[in-house]
Structure formats: structure tokens, C-alpha cells
Design a protein around this nucleic acid. Structure first.
Lengths: 207, 207
DNA sequence: CATATCCGATACTCGCTAGTTCCGAATCGC
DNA sequence: GCGATTCGGAACTAGCGAGTATCGGATATG
């Protein structure tokens, strides 16, 4: 009870939080945090309110139920997506894929997978949530892979005959499996094994 | 106390149920069923008891808590493993992998994945459960793949330089991803895509 | 300062579920 | 058949969490 007062150092010049954040967004971020740590079923509104330094009533003034709040939180995760104009362009597919392995990117990915893990049991009960989660978590990663592979095809690095739709899911699937089922970290070594041991060979690039 | 007298014979040809099943096993099977359908958090002892046509008290006479019952149920799933002497041996790796795609096998796999999905949120809270689930669900499938690939190496069909440990997880990972995150069926078409589009190419076998 | 508004906190209600207890009935060992 | 045991069912307790209502205080405005 009365858990962490971990960081209300951080001054907080009166009521202000970040200007560009509405109170709603702060609560949704707290929702994502709790979701990643305890999962949907283990999450309580009180936990979210406490983490956002808000009252439970404040939460219910904005969303009608726990379920709606979570769907909103997932949907707003999508905004933190990578933008395609900032992707690496090293000249080789391997270079691009390796360049994707950098702290902010993989930590963000691991966090998203933790959230997804907390939602799994709910996906069957709420198709709406399932779709929101797919759009926010699964699709972005696959899209990046598809883009990088397509560019490699365009420059003639790999054959256009490969099964792109299946291959773009190799990385995301194995990362999800490792985090959610094996509960091991998705570290650089693992990702390089997937790239060099599966993805590139499958595309006809021998190590 | 509450020591299991796990196998007081079998018998009981009375009106009973399956002959070769003790009451414990029946309850554990019901547990697995409910787990697959509603997940750990959604599962109630009453659901399990009702499905096993038992009283709640009967359940608590055998296990001290819901958690212990589930761990027992998962552990006993392991017994339905494939035995290696019954694996296909068609002469080619592709033939073997395709031969694994048959109704009883893939339905069993899909069911195991549903159970795993219902456990995901609990794995973080119970390392004991996580280990039981890994042994019962993840490991058997990887072992079969490892065996088939090793045999292909031994007969000279594929190079011994491939990253076996990573490749054996491609199928299980992508199947889990599809069932749990995408909520699509693991059908024959999908599995063939994985085999022909990823696994075999990654092993140097061009389609 | 006065007023209207929104916030955080607290204290409820209500339903649900883990776990317990009890009892009549069915079953087993003999 | 006849006790001893176990079973299924149901009633009960206790605690937790969603959702609601209320209230004192802080903010904004003029």
C-alpha cells in the first residue's frame, strides 16, 4: 500500500506537467506502464490512478470503464511509431537490420511485447482490443521489415521470389516467443542470431 | 498432507468414466480445458469442478490451491508428448516436416498454444509455472524439430553449419505468434509457408 | 475577494471468487 | 448386506476490485 513515492522529486512547478501532455495522455501512459508490469487482469484502476497521481474518480470522469481506458491506451501507443524517413540505409540488408538493433529501439520493442503479453488473455474476449493491439504492436514492426526487404529487392540484393509476408514476421514472432513464453531478454546477441541464422539465409544471403 | 494417492489402481468399472483415468487425471484434464478457453485469471474452481462433474470440495481435497492445481495440470500435459520412435522418416527433411502436419498433431499443438496463452500473464508471477509450461509446451516441439534437422545433417542433406538452436524455434515461434497475437488458425497453408518460405531456405534448401 | 469549476482522496455499494464446512448419498472393502 | 470412506452439492466466509458518490481544497477568472 502507499507504494512508491519514487520520483516526485522532479520539481513540478505547480500544476504543470509537460505542456504538450494533457491529463488524459498522462493517465494513458500510466495505464501502459501498469499493463506491462501486471497484465490486464492484474491491473486495477487504483494502480493506474496512483501511478498518474490522480484519483480514481478522475479516471472515471474520462472513460466509462477499465476496458475502454485500456483500448484507448493501446491505440495511443501507435503514435510512438518509427517514421520511415528515419530508417537506416546502409546499403546492405544486413547492415540495415543490424542498425535497427540499438537501445532505444529494442527497449521500446521489448516494452511493447510486455504490454502485449499482458493483453493476450483479453484478446479472445475483445476483438476490438485485439485489433487495436495488432495495429499498435504487431503491424509497425512488420512494416519496417517489409520496407527494408523491399528496398533490398529493388536494389537487386535479394531475389524477388522470396515469401516476404512470412519472412517479415520471423523477427517479431521469435522476439515475442522469447519474451513472453521463454521469458528471456531480447538482447543484441539473440537478434543477431535471428538475422544471421534465419532471416538472411532464408532470403538467400549466405553468411 | 493431502498427499496424492495418485494411482489407487484404476478399475472401478462402475458407471464411471473412462477406465484408465483416475479422478485426479479427469480433474486435471478439465483444468486444461478451462485454461485453454478462458485463461488462468478467468478460470474459476467452480468451472473446473463443473466440467469434471465434481464438487469444489473434491478439488480442494486434492490440491491446496488453484495455483498448485494448474501447475499439476500443466506438468501432466507433458505426458501426451510425441514419442520419437513414431516420427515420420520420409528420406527428406521437407517430407518429414510436411508429414508432421496432420490433424491430430496440429490440433494438439494449437490446443497447447491456447493453454500457453491463458498462462502468459501468470508466468511472470510464478517461475515454477513458467518452467512447467516451458517443459510441457515449448520444449517438446523444439526437440522434434531438432531431431529431424539433426537427422538431415547426418544424412548429408543440409550443412552442419546452420544455427540449429535458433532454427528449431522458428516454427513454434511463428505458430505461437499467429495463434496468440494474430488470433488466426495454424492451418496447413500457414505451416507450409513457414516450412518452404523460411525454414528450408534458411537451411540452404532452395524451393 | 467571490464564485464556479475541476481535482484528489476517501468511503462507500455490489458482485464475484478463493477457500471452508457440512451433509446426505453413493461407493468400496469385506 | 454392512460399516467406513469418499463423493457431489450447496451454503457460507472473507477479501478484493469495479464502479459511484461525496467532499474539502486548489485553480481560474474578474
Amino acid at each position: 500500500m502507499t507504494l512508491d513515492l519514487e520520483e516526485h522529486v522532479a520539481e513540478a512547478p505547480k500544476m504543470g506537467r509537460k505542456r504538450d501532455h494533457t491529463r488524459d495522455a498522462e493517465i494513458l501512459e500510466a495505464t501502459i506502464d501498469v499493463l506491462a508490469e501486471t497484465g490486464y487482469d492484474g491491473m486495477t484502476i487504483d494502480m493506474v490512478a496512483a501511478r498518474a497521481k490522480a484519483g480514481k474518480a478522475t479516471v472515471y470522469r474520462r472513460w466509462a470503464s477499465k476496458g475502454e481506458m485500456v483500448i484507448d491506451a493501446i491505440a495511443c501507443m501507435k503514435q510512438s511509431d518509427v517514421d520511415f524517413s528515419n530508417l537506416p540505409d546502409t546499403g546492405t540488408l544486413r547492415g540495415d537490420l543490424i542498425a535497427m538493433i540499438k537501445p532505444p529501439t529494442i527497449e521500446d520493442a521489448e516494452r511493447k511485447l510486455q504490454v502485449m503479453g499482458g493483453l493476450v488473455s483479453m484478446l479472445a474476449r475483445s476483438p476490438e482490443l485485439a485489433e487495436a493491439a495488432r495495429l499498435a504492436i504487431v503491424e509497425p514492426r512488420a512494416s519496417v521489415n517489409r520496407f527494408l526487404i523491399q528496398r533490398a529487392i529493388d536494389r537487386g540484393e535479394i531475389s524477388p521470389d522470396c515469401d516476404i509476408d512470412t519472412i517479415v514476421l520471423v523477427g517479431p514472432s521469435m522476439a515475442a516467443h522469447r519474451v513472453l513464453l521463454l521469458r528471456k531478454p531480447v538482447d543484441r546477441e539473440f537478434l543477431i542470431s535471428v538475422i544471421d541464422g534465419v532471416v538472411l539465409p532464408a532470403l538467400g544471403i549466405r553468411a
